[in-house]
Structures are given as C-alpha cells and as structure tokens.
Design a protein around this nucleic acid. Structure first.
Lengths: 252, 252
DNA sequence: CGTTACGTTGAAAGGGTTCAATCCCTGTGG
DNA sequence: CCACAGGGATTGAACCCTTTCAACGTAACG
C-alpha cells in the first residue's frame, strides 16, 4: 500500500515543491512525520470542486499540479474571484475561524492536491516547532496576499491591474523554477477580469493593446511576455513580494 | 513594579476585551501565563506610529484603546489604507513572513496597545494548545479580512462601499458590547475614502445623500445610523461575518 | 484671530461598463 | 469529414459613475 502510494505519488520527501509548499525549513525526519498524515487525493478534473462554501472544514489542501480558483458568489450570482493557486500553494487557511469553508475552490484543469487533515496537523505542529512556525508563515503569507489584492483593486487602473496580474503569475512560475516569460496558463480571460474587478471586455481590449505594443502576447492559453521590464514597471510592485519561499526558523 | 503595572493597566485577566482579543478560549491559568509575556506600552498619541514599513518585526500588538490605521505608501506617495483596528484587534500578523513590517501602523487617537513579543509567544504557544489554536484562528481571521476587503473593492459601487464600511464598524462595536447605532469614530472621511478606493469628494457626496435620506448621519466624529435595515441591505453582507469572537477549541 | 487642514459643492472630463453584434475555437454528432 | 452548436473572446458605440479640478466653507489650534 505504502509502496503503491509512492509509486504513483511522490511523498513530501521526493516532491519537487518542497521549497514552496509546507515542508520548507523542516528537517528530513520531520518531513517524514508530516508526510505520514498527508492524504494524496485522486486528481480533480476540470470543473470539479475541491470544496464549497458552507462545507465543514477538515483539511488544508496543497496543490500538487494544476490550478485552483477560489471564488465566492454574490447575491446576484456573479463570481468574485479571490485567487488562483498553483502547485505548492496551500488553500483552506481561511476556513479556520468558521470551521467551515467560506469560499468555493474549483479546479480549472486536471488538478491533484494533497489533503492535510487539520486536526492531525495541529497536533503534529505542537510537536515540531519548525512546522508550527511554518504554519504561521503560511497564514501570514495569506494575510499579505489579500492585502496586496486590495491594494491592486484600490488604486490601480485597468492596464496596471492586468500587468500586475501577468507579472505576479510570472513571478510565481519563476519561484518554482519554471520558465516565466513564456508559459501556459489555464485561466480564462473572464476569470482574470473577475479577479481584477474588471469586465471581460476591458481585459480583452487591454490584451489587444498589449499585443500590439509588443508588451505581452496572450492568446488562448499561451502567455508570452515580450518586454519584461516594461511589464514590471507597469505592474508597479511595492518591492515586497507576496511570495516568500524561505521562512525558516533558525533550527536549534 | 508588578503592582504598579496592574494598578495602571489591567492584566489580561481583568481586561474587558478578553472575549475579542487573544485569550479567547484560554483557561484562567493559561491567561496568566500569556499575561506574563505581554508588555503594556505607554499610550501612543494621535499621529504616532506603532511601526513602520521596513522595521524589524518583534512583536504583535493588541489594541487596548483607540484606533490604529494600517496603510502603505505608493510610489506616488498616496496612502493605501488596508484597515482600521479597534480595541481587541491584533495587528502585525502580516509581518511574519518577512520578519519585518510591510505596512505602517499609525494611531488615529490616543491609543494604547499591548505588545506581545513573538519569539516568546511562539514558545508559549507550543506549550498551550489552546493558545496555538487561537493564533491560527487570529491569522485565519486576518486572511478573511483581506479577502472581504477585496470583495468590497471589486464589485461594489461607491454607495455600497460606504454603507458596508459603516455597517462593518457598527458590527464591530456591537461585538464589543458597545452602542452600535450611535458612536464616535475618530476616522477622517478622507481615510474612509482611501480605504474604500474612492475620493474624499465622493464619500462626502454620499454622506450628504445618506443624511438627506435619513439613512446615516455622520458629522465630524459622530456617527448615527438611522435606518439600520436599509443600511444593512445596502451593505450587502454575504452572511459570513468577518468577525468571529469565539473560536474555541473544545478543551479537554 | 489667523492659519491650516479637512470637508463640501459644482461643473467638466474620462475610464470603464454596458449592450449588442460578430468572430473564433473546440467539441460533437451526423 | 464536415456541419453545427456553444462558450468564450473581440470589437464598436453610447452611456454613466466616479474622478478631477477648482472654489468655497468651516472647524480646530496655536
């Protein structure tokens, strides 16, 4: 059984996402203990929900492959998109206060995740200081993420928002060691619009302009950043990346 | 010394904010231990900074009295306001990932805070499961807070944003057991505007209209909600309050 | 009592939305 | 293999909410 598991799915120890995901800063032995409570789920297909608003909260989920979109539905039925999550990202942290999920999580592609039962994680966390610290870091990262999103929505115009979005995705690919000036992204333009508080039409117009100006080409699922510097300038980051990969506690 | 301390400032055990602040869900003895690491600072005066962007992170801060505004400065020098914090709220959670503060925190009034050295808190937290759980809940709350703010900025018009702001403040007063249909609020209209991604002019016009329609009267620092139901409807909450006061773990 | 900073009010301008028509890609079925 | 359907993307034109700019009002503080 254990063999079968590792045959199909690398455990945390062999996982390429160690540097990004949970185990950051853990020693080998601790990773093994963490690994023992991780449940590797059968992949979700495009359109499947990982969880829905109102469901009881049991586990955090770490994305192994694919993309997950977090969204809420307003009374009028329109989607409010709160984020897109890539391999190595952890979702579900928001559900803690309410003991139930407050948002919907849907797979935008074939997506596999690791489920980490929170009860067990909490117990383990108390035994492994570095893991507990890592938990705090992850949640802190979640706080910053939301704030950054608020900043974008608050005072940036449509061009800057789109530029910021593309650049932030690129940075996340960069941090994962993937190509970041040219990549596939299974996110619909309409979803980008909903995430950025714009309409699909506006995003479309901006992407048309970007292509014409040789800034970014984004056709279907293919993104190609032509002028990195100009994009970065437009995106206008505040020098504080929302992504931190190393949050290690000085291990004793 | 200890006597002097308690003479001037109630310890956690006597603090009226127990239900809101850190100690929620802790037993008496644990509160005492928490209390022992809490540093009660001399009050900040209006305009003093609790921390600034770039400063090293050492402590979390719990607001005892007053109001604290969290903001960032964009390149062009304008304020991006991320939140207002009332007695019982905890700030600084965002600084964890970077080991330094990413935002500025300024007192809008005479404001006193409790500083909780994070190193010590982390150690204590490992010894008191309920405290650790409370930490997770606090951070989770922080995540939800940011997301909610994003939702507001994303798809609500100016009237709804202002209504939401007033109603959310009212709710927070309610949770603290204060009067919530009529209260003083030391937040400038221009700050409200910056928080909501609007201009002071727009907020002014909306408040003028609100007063005329007998919805809300907000002159200077006096807020009076006339039509609670109409305000609530306009604010359009998604039924998931951002404020959770009880996040207790079932204590054994 | 003047200075300063915040608030108000009006008119004009603009960025993004809305609505509607058309296009394009993909998947499906005959 | 082609036709067709359906969802998403694109494009255009009119509209509208919010911003911008500017002037004035007003409360607080030395």
């Amino acid at each position: 059984m254990a063999d079968l598991k590792t045959a199909f799915n690398a455990g945390c120890l062999n996982c390429g996402l160690q540097k990004i995901c949970f185990p950051t800063g853990l020693v080998r032995n601790d990773i093994t203990r963490l690994d023992s409570i991780v449940e590797r789920k059968t992949p979700f297909r495009k359109g499947d929900h990982v969880f829905r608003t109102g469901q009881a909260f049991h586990s955090l989920f770490a994305v192994r492959a694919g993309v997950i979109k977090i969204y809420a539905l307003s009374d009028s039925g329109e989607e409010q998109i709160l984020g897109f999550y890539l391999p190595g990202d952890v979702i579900g942290l928001d559900a803690l206060t309410h003991k139930m999920h407050v948002y919907n999580a849907i797979a935008l592609d074939t997506t596999s995740v690791c489920a980490i039962p929170f009860d067990q994680l909490e117990v383990l966390s108390l035994q492994i200081p570095a893991l507990n610290h890592q938990m705090f870091c992850l949640m802190s990262k979640g706080v910053n993420e939301g704030r950054l999103h608020s900043e974008i929505l608050s005072k940036r115009n449509a061009d800057q928002r789109v530029a910021h979005f593309i650049w932030s995705i690129a940075q996340r690919f960069m941090n994962r060691g993937y190509a970041y000036t040219e990549f596939r992204l299974g996110v619909l333009h309409r979803d980008v619009a909903a995430f950025l508080g714009l309409t699909p039409e506006t995003v479309s117009r901006i992407l048309a302009k970007s292509a014409q100006d040789d800034l970014v080409h984004w056709k279907r699922k293919e993104v190609k950043i032509v002028d990195v510097e100009r994009l970065r300038a437009l995106a206008g980051e505040r020098n504080v990346s929302a992504e931190v990969t190393d949050c290690r506690v000085k291990s004793g």
